[in-house]
Amino acid sequence: MAESTSLRRAMAWPGQYRMLVMMWIRSSLAYPASFALTLVSTMLITGTDFVAVVLMFSHIESFGGFSLGEMGLLYGTASMTLGLADLATGSIERIGQRIRTGELDVWLIRPVPAFIQAVADNFALRRLGRPFQAGLVLVIALGHIELDWTVAKGIVLVVSMLTGSIIFGAIFVLGAAFQFISIDSAELANSFTYGGQQLTQYPLSIFGKDIVRAVTFIVPLAFVNYYPVLFVLGKPAPLGLPSWIGLLAPAVAVAMIALASVAWRGGLRRYRSTGS
């Protein structure tokens, strides 16, 4: 009985999320010129990272064993997954501010989970700039890579975009949950989200074995794009790990969802029992 009601409630979440998001989209499209301008500048701002890579390649032929085309694939997947995660859940990083202004209380008196309201809050369509730009880099990069494409590789690449986005999304939520303990720590999560994107746009092996271990077993950023891309490109995995390790990305994504969900609930419970 209780199971079925909570299931029915969970079934309503996508609809509730869409409703709130549509409202913000409508309001941002009310000024189309201004929207287009911010979209383009978001593309440019987020694209400067890849410009840096291209500039580097004016001096080198390969970076950590990756050609420019292959770097484009790594960059594109890193930026795409972070961009999609930021689009869907990035607003949650302002939770500390929302606690301070009392807005969280307003969310808590409504019949929609606070989580849904927090991720949909001020939904900014201009954040599409990053995925657009990443998509552009991906298309160009795929045109420059010599590769025997198989169905399996195609599926792994597409699925990894989804699971990578989920992993980044979970990190956004974990960072937000931490703000229930330390209200001013919003920027701390940036180390793992934007820092994670910065890290995963390069072949991780260049950072040394300790870092590769850390992003495999502690903060599983290597599963966002690195291992799946290695699988697609047919390159060996570091640390003597099997080459199919990239196929574990979906399992890692599920584990991250579970972890983020526990952390968020814990944070909210703490808020509701301490009032701060």
């Binding site: 409202m23 309001s27 209380d105 008196i109 409504r110 019949p111």
Partner: peptide, 26 residues
């Protein structure tokens, strides 16, 4: 809490429950 939410209404005098940047009707 969420079940009850549909049966109660709350007004916080100091802060609004409305969406700051949107027209009232939205």
């Amino acid at each position: 809490r969420m079940k009850l939410a549909k049966r109660i209404g709350v007004v916080f005098g100091q802060r609004t429950t409305l969406w700051w940047d949107l027209p009232l009707k939205d």
